[in-house]
Amino acid sequence: MNPGNNEASHRCGSVAVVGRPNVGKSTLVNALVGAKVSIVSNRPQTTRHRLLGIATVPGGQMLLVDTPGLHRQEGRFKASAMSRVMNRTARGAVEDVDAAVLVVEAGRWDEEDSHAFKVLSDAGIPVVLVVNKVDRLKDKSTLLPFLAEVSKDRQFAAVHPVSALKRKGLEALVADVLALLPEAPPVYDEDEITDRSQRFLAGELVREQLMRQLGDELPYATTVEIERFAEDGALLRIGAVIWVEREGQKPIVIGKAGARLREIGSKARQQMERLFGRKVFLETWVRVREGWSDDEAALKAFGYGQE
């Protein structure tokens, strides 16, 4: 697809990337952008903020709005203020967009997927269905019947089976999404990949390591605040505070003789250097703020729900 360079044929618009938790929305956004702008783990609630990934492709620019997973207010998420804020953020992402991508997992459609589809249907925007993780299907012969079943009685602008992790099936997806966007010049320069600051991304990269390394022990009890972000010549000096909810959680994050905290910091620093293209000196501390994840004032102070 190469419409040429004349401005009238260039397409640009916003696309909400929506789905239940843990279906690969952030992996898809990163694959389309061609860089890591959204953190990824195998835990629900990894994405907590609305984040814009900018995918500049031949003939167009897609402004991909990565969102927290949509979920119904019940079960394990029922009483959480964090859950309410994330749901508001995800629902807000479908306002004033040109199109939406509904991401589901190959071979699985449940009530959470139906809920996400209803939110998009109610918004009255064209929806492209992305069936992700097709590479994990053990029996590939089940894919076509699954696609037929989920498309029955549901209106989709297009349906695309993909593997976001392996970047398979994305070219055809991009072509169909671009076709839904208005003719308009690009909003961002070609080398821009997100609207978020490096300071914000640094905090997210620390939190990614917390989700990956502490998922079994403290899946949702941690958040990160960047206290210092300063340039020192070619070096970035970053100070990150890891907040937990109870005093007894501090030693879990710190680990024996500080080993786990060092590992979290080391891996986060490596990711920062890769993303920012420069050396990083990262310091981390662990502090307690009682019950922060169920306190809307605390969530606001940590930047949640401010999009």
Rank of each mutant, 00 (worst) to 15 (best):
L214Y: 11
V33T: 02
K138W: 04
E192W: 07
D176Y: 03
A116C: 02
A148M: 13
F200M: 10
K140I: 15
P161Q: 08
N2E: 15
S114G: 08
R88Y: 08
V131R: 02
P251Q: 11
I39N: 04
V103R: 05
V177A: 03
D122R: 06
W285I: 00
A179Y: 04
R262Q: 15
L173R: 00
K36P: 08
S163Y: 13
Q198R: 11
V18A: 05
V33E: 05
A123E: 08
L205H: 12
A8P: 05
E296K: 14
Q198G: 06
I125L: 13
G233V: 04
L170R: 10
A158Y: 07
T47F: 08
G53P: 07
V15P: 01
Q73G: 08
L137W: 15
G239S: 13
K25T: 03
P251W: 01
G53D: 12
V131S: 03
D191P: 00
G4T: 04
I125R: 09
L137Y: 14
V57Y: 00
D191H: 09
S83Y: 03
A100D: 10
R136F: 14
F302G: 11
T46S: 02
V150R: 02
A93L: 10
T56W: 09
V134H: 03
V119N: 02
L173A: 05
Q155P: 06
V241G: 00
G265N: 09
S9G: 04
V130C: 11
N87S: 02
I54W: 04
A16V: 02
F156H: 03
Q73S: 14
S293D: 12
A31Q: 07
A164Y: 09
S293C: 07
S121W: 01
A234F: 08
Q249T: 10
E192A: 04
G69I: 04
K166F: 15
P251I: 13
F276S: 08
S151M: 03
Q270N: 06
A157E: 10
I238F: 05
D139R: 15
F146W: 02
G258A: 10
D216Y: 10
G92W: 10
R212G: 11
T46M: 04
D191Q: 07
V206M: 11
